[in-house]
Design a protein around this nucleic acid. Sequence first.
DNA 1: TATTGTTATACTCTATAACTATA
DNA 2: TATAGTTATAGAGTATAACAATA
Lengths: 155, 155
Amino acid sequence: MSPAERTRPTGRDRLRDSTLAGDLSFLLARANARALAAANTALAAHGLKARSYSVLALAADDVRPTQRELAEFLHLDPSQVVALIDGLEQRQLVERHADPADRRANVLTATDAGRALFARAQDAVRAVGLDSLASMTPRDHERLAHLLRLLAFPD
Amino acid sequence: MSPAERTRPTGRDRLRDSTLAGDLSFLLARANARALAAANTALAAHGLKARSYSVLALAADDVRPTQRELAEFLHLDPSQVVALIDGLEQRQLVERHADPADRRANVLTATDAGRALFARAQDAVRAVGLDSLASMTPRDHERLAHLLRLLAFPD
DNA sequence: TATTGTTATACTCTATAACTATA
DNA sequence: TATAGTTATAGAGTATAACAATA
């Protein structure tokens, strides 16, 4: 370590001692930014991003969401959902089905190809996720998920 | 509860049972989105957003960050930091000072007006933050901060 | 009259490259 | 030659309003 580094430590370490760095919202934003970047990197090889991955995940699950439900759950505008589904539908990964009970609504399902791609993408996301979580015990992981759920779904 | 609601529960509740909803990255994204929206709402009355608030916070602290340090710490491009500081400087909340040790670098400090505004903004942010965290014990709050720090600063 | 999905549009945010002045 | 800050610009993301079909 050089004398200069001792008298004026590198900015990263100095700024970590700031009051902002202790703020929960700031930690949340930074942790999310890291997780999002890692996920997007892993998903790029499959032609997906976090947004389209989330839509595909809900289509591949058996929840049969309408576009309106997707918009509310993912905190997106309905018009953004249109664009996301258009992209996935052109690649024949998902399908829109008119809801028999309400013909205004489109129910989203995944094709076999969509399910297969989702499985591969999920593996890729989990592989990079483990890098960041490797130092965390399963118990802490569970605790974190529980606490985040309180913030994510307060009602 | 109407019969229709029992046979086809509202989308929000159905989607919460999806596998995506249990994913840590998804919970992180959703918790962050909520915290960010709440903070931005609280900050709007003071003419700030989360970004400019973060810059002002670090300027008002005594860490004397350079623009480069701000960019790295806040995960922003240096050109974005320029724009953020321009806005704060025009309102005379912060000042750029050429670093005597390296005249290429600008050290950022807050004016008295900047410190005063930051104090008010910080109160506003904490007030809305408590809404989301009211159901959380201080011990859980501390645990969450600790776990998020592991994800936010893994090295 | 209200809601679902859609389109169009404008605004913000983000990423990139090139330039200057200092080191 | 490399780095800090700046400028310009294009792309992605986001928000808003208006519209047709259906409830």
